[in-house]
């Protein structure tokens, strides 16, 4: 899955580090890494709807401004998509719960992560536990 992250939502991208698994973790969070002197929760992609496949080896971690780490297999690059490239997420797409839109550029479908929706979803998982 190709994802798009707004640079406005991004703190930085760091080299992937081993994640300390949480004992009795809640759905959506695989564990924590030590980041800037604090623990940073790391997303468990496989727990998200529309994301059931296993993640390959990760090389980097995108740190979102709301302090959440997203492990990624690789960084493709940066892009400024033209307005006409944007489209809505398919209503039947389970990933709609955490996506903010879809962008089609140069034959690639890039799915925009919406940090607010993603974090709201993770909080719901915590409450449902």
């Amino acid at each position: 899955m190709n994802l798009l992250l707004s640079t406005l939502d991004l703190r930085e991208v760091v080299v992937s580090a081993p994640v300390a698994p949480l004992p009795g973790r809640s759905r959506g969070i695989q564990g924590v890494v030590f980041y800037q002197g604090e623990f940073l929760p790391v997303l468990a992609w496989e727990d998200l709807p529309g994301c059931e496949g296993t993640l390959g080896a990760t090389t980097a971690m995108a740190v979102l401004r709301p302090r959440l780490g997203l492990p990624v297999e690789r960084v493709i690059g940066t892009i400024t998509p033209p307005p006409e490239a944007w489209g809505d997420v398919d209503e039947k797409d389970d990933a709609g719960a955490w996506l903010g839109g879809v962008c089609r550029v140069a034959g690639l479908e890039l799915r925009l992560v919406d940090p607010d929706r993603l974090i709201a979803l993770l909080h719901r998982y915590r409450e449902d536990r």
Binding site: A20, L22, P23
Partner: peptide
């Protein structure tokens, strides 16, 4: 160090690196 809210786990009050 305390755990961020998203990483709270039952019975764990924090971690030490």
């Amino acid at each position: 160090r305390s755990l961020p809210e998203l990483a709270h786990a039952a019975g764990v009050m924090g971690g030490s690196a």
